[in-house]
Amino acid sequence: MAKIKGDIVVNIERCKGCEVCLAACPFTCIAMSEEVNSKGYHFAMKVNDDCTGCSNCALVCPDGVITVYRAKVTVA
């Protein structure tokens, strides 16, 4: 069965931890990290495999730190 699978890459050093992407994600795939980046912000990170690559998080990100990939994968 084919399934749409997405992946996001967060530019950790540029993330300011505003959490706007958390509210925008329809599958609650994003959460804030426990660690902080060099500026002291908790950064956004992917926390499950439900991402479909809808790019909602990337659209609302004020700093444009999220890059989105999406592919059709075959799963057994």
Binding site: K5, G6, D7, V9, I12, S33, E35, M45, K46, V47, N48, D49, C51, G53, S55, A58, L59, G64, V65, I66, T67, V68, Y69, R70, A71
Partner: peptide
């Protein structure tokens, strides 16, 4: 840091959906 749910195999140019524009 370990990215537990990362899928590096998906991160290819043809799968790219959205990235910050180079005009910024």
């Amino acid at each position: 840091m370990e990215e537990k749910f990362a899928h590096p195999e998906l991160r290819t140019p043809e799968n790219l959906v959205y990235k910050r524009t180079d005009l910024l």
